[in-house]
Amino acid sequence: MGWITTGLIAWAVGWQTNVWLARRPKTRLTRLIIPIIFGLTLIALWECLVRGLEVKAVLLPPPSMIAVRFATSLNILWQDLVQTVVKGALTGYVMGCSAAFLTAIVVDRFPFLRRGLLPVGNFVAALPIIGMAPILVMWFGFDWQSKAAVVVIMVFFPMLVNTVQGLQATDSMQRDLMRTYAAGYWKSLLKLRLPAAMPFVFNGLKIATTLALIGAIVAEFFGSPIKGMGFRISTEVGRLALDMVWAEIVVAAIVGSAFYGGVALLEKAITFWHPSQRG
């Protein structure tokens, strides 16, 4: 009983603090601290409820147990991280996004291609592409190459569609101005249309970060060497070692947020002129 009461009290205190903080004028600090308090109270509530209700560790381990497991198996986690994120996801992400970016420029140059590829691209972007994973694992083998290939295919179409849209984001007035400056295709592409496309490009890049990690992890469910986050998750689930699974998920969460955050920071630096970044 004690644990449950403690948990509920922690929850109430956390929520009240947030209510009090939210009533105060919005500052940078409150905007940062409120979600953190919310997250911490959630973790506290989780810990207390698991202990209080005596949930078995094979169903839902308490956060403290996950933290201990995380700290004691840093080696394995790091090895999995390198295999899945650095070799699989990042390689595929860079290859897929740059391929899509270049394709988008070509597509944009020829209106015929644009009118043909854009609907197809939009269609493909809505398909469950992750299903290609078993095929690509068969083609490229169990190691990271097949994971990178899955990532390439997954990020390609969202990135392509966004970039093509971005390249059309200039209005005719701006393009006319470039023409009065006697700027040719390349000049106006470099000076006007690519910069104007950047918000869209970054939108695509941000969507692609999550897709890249998902692709790399899920592809490992279809076969992998004996390391990698997807491999670890699926085997440890089989052994009911859920604390290890959660430790992998913590890693995935940290990496995912860091990846996304990194791209968002880059966006802030490059598209500083855009209204959404000035606010």
């Binding site: 919005k26 409120i34 999550t210 998902i214 998920i249």
Partner: peptide, 26 residues
């Protein structure tokens, strides 16, 4: 609800940067 806006919304966004499909087996 202002409190909910400020405390839940960031987590909703953060939840998507997590490759959640990974926990499907679990």
């Amino acid at each position: 609800n202002r409190t909910m806006d400020m405390s839940v919304m960031p987590w909703v966004i953060a939840s998507q940067t997590i490759p959640i499909l990974a926990i499907a087996p679990m």
